[in-house]
Write a protein that binds this DNA or RNA. Structure first.
Length: 115
DNA sequence: ATTCTGACAGCAA
DNA sequence: TTTGCTGCCAGAA
């Protein structure tokens, strides 16, 4: 019972993970977009906080697909090596220059819009 | 219970 | 244009 309830009630973090896992290959989204989808709106910082704990999750969270609203890889520093995040994104066909995603609006995936 | 922090976003100077 | 401060929410110490 508790475990079942936990699945739906675990809260913010789970939702963040869920959405992050839903990001299609070769697409990216922003912290604010996720926050808004969660209904928190301005709590974009929480999304980052949740992703920070993502490494504690049993599954791999494609957190490299989540960037700030400028398409800037603000969280790349949290991927062990600073280049890891960029490498992963480039591996998915996303061009990055100076830590910024080129054609960000084009690659942008809005959970609210798509879901 | 109180305080601090945090991978952001928005606005002001 | 770049830099800095504030607001926001939830979790951790």
């Amino acid at each position: 019972m508790k475990s079942e309830r936990q699945r739906d009630n675990d809260g913010f973090f789970e939702k963040v993970y869920e959405i992050t896992l839903l990001i299609p290959y070769g697409r990216v989204t922003s912290y604010g977009a996720i926050a808004r989808f969660l209904g928190s709106g301005q709590s974009a910082r929480m999304v980052g906080w949740a992703l920070n704990s993502s490494h504690t999750r049993p599954d791999f969270i494609p957190a490299h697909r989540v960037v700030n609203r400028n398409g800037l890889l603000t969280g790349k520093h949290h991927f062990g090596n600073s280049t890891t995040m960029q490498q992963l994104l480039e591996n998915e066909g996303i061009i990055i220059e100076d830590n910024r995603i080129i054609d960000f609006p084009e690659k942008f995936w809005d959970p609210m819009k798509e879901l």
